[in-house]
Design a protein around this nucleic acid. Structure first.
Lengths: 215, 215
DNA sequence: GCTTACGGATACTGATACTATCCATGAAGA
DNA sequence: TCTTCATGGATAGTATCAGTATCCGTAAGC
């Protein structure tokens, strides 16, 4: 298959495919002559994965590259791949706030992790995000949300366990790695969408579409 | 308080504050003379909210404006506010894929919604995201993830119920609206961070940090 | 042989989120 | 009162990101 067909079958414009080739997201096609290449089903699959990461999970192109490296790695353990993906998809966030509010949030997160017996690196990027988010919630007077962390953690733990169990039931370790990498990134999009639907539905039931507020 | 102090206390640069004023994210200060304004604690709070939405929840500036309008509205019902926020934070996604794969995903989502008895608008933006995500997962051969939708939906429903219950326990309807808007947006960041931590921990336990894979 | 498509390189574009500069005016200390 | 500095408001400039567009010499296919 040449680039035009790859473009047609993937729905991605030819210049965009060339861009992904340049950026190293898509491996080069097999050269049949100095200026003629051939692409296979592997390229089509990869292109679909790239588009899903960019379009659905909103992962920046530079991070997609890192994710794909973890995806392709022949040497990383599954745990290392997960760490790499987590670092790639977690932006460095530092919202300015009172240092003592943040200190309290940090303590709360540390206690939560201890209480749940979670084995995580102390510099896991998600910890910083969690601390900043709780700090922001408290600074905004939303203590009720920040105060129910344990309940959220339990619910989240449930489906994460489920997800990893489903995925590790594959026989092939390569396939497990593939599933975990895809699941880590697209799972977030999936869960976020489900949450919005659940919220819409529960709010309709609890409050009624006509129950006005704010007058 | 004048702009320099607002900047100092919020940690946001003066030109950025001016930019938010221009964009209508931040209401103008009270003019004490034709070219002198005074800002209050309300502005400081608003600025913190803006930064949390942009930095933590990665909401684009244009969407922050829409979210804040729902936040401030004197006429929208809670349900309308939620709908507005959902539309603002959900990008229009359309990943090209086989139409029959998408049709199957659409049917699956419709059945899920029916099975759970969710009362959602058929054109809810999250439905499109969900359909596209499931389509992508199936196209990538990750049927195991897409196949456990019901279990995810149940877990998600649990903490969404919890969240709305916690929030509607406030007496003041204005405060409820505020909490729901903030919770809808920042809750996603919170849950995503918790999920990454749970995943890291479970993967460490299940697979061991040293269990290599992919050789 | 002629037209069309191709691979590869380079340059350009539009959107986003700020930053910087300018200017006339007003506040505030010497 | 004088003077210096900050301020509000307007306009222009910048960096980054994610593509798009163009060009060129070569190869495929009728």
């Amino acid at each position: 298959m040449r680039i035009a067909e790859l473009s047609r079958r993937s729905g991605v414009a030819v210049p965009t495919i060339k861009y992904y080739l340049r950026e190293g997201l898509l491996p080069p096609g097999e050269l049949t002559s100095p200026n003629q290449a051939r692409y296979g089903e592997r390229h089509l699959r990869r292109l679909r994965l790239i588009r899903a990461l960019i379009e659905l999970a909103q992962v920046p192109v530079a991070s997609v590259k890192v994710v794909l490296q973890a995806f392709d790695s022949e040497t990383m353990s599954l745990h290392e791949r997960i760490g790499t993906v987590h670092r790639a998809i977690t932006p460095h966030r530092q919202v300015t706030a009172d240092d003592d509010v943040r200190a309290a949030a940090t303590a709360q997160v540390r206690e939560l992790i201890a209480r749940r017996g979670w084995a995580v690196e102390p510099d896991a990027p998600a910890i910083a995000t969690l601390v900043e988010t709780i700090t922001a919630l408290r600074a905004l007077g939303q203590d009720s949300l920040a105060g129910h962390l344990d309940a959220y953690a339990e619910a989240v733990e449930r489906f994460t366990e489920l997800e990893l169990a489903a995925v590790t039931s594959h026989a092939d370790p390569d396939q497990i790695a593939e599933s975990v990498v895809i699941g880590t990134v697209l799972g977030e999009t999936l869960i976020a969408a489900l949450r919005l639907l659940a919220q819409e539905s529960i709010s309709a039931r609890l409050l009624g579409p006509a129950s006005a507020s704010g007058q």
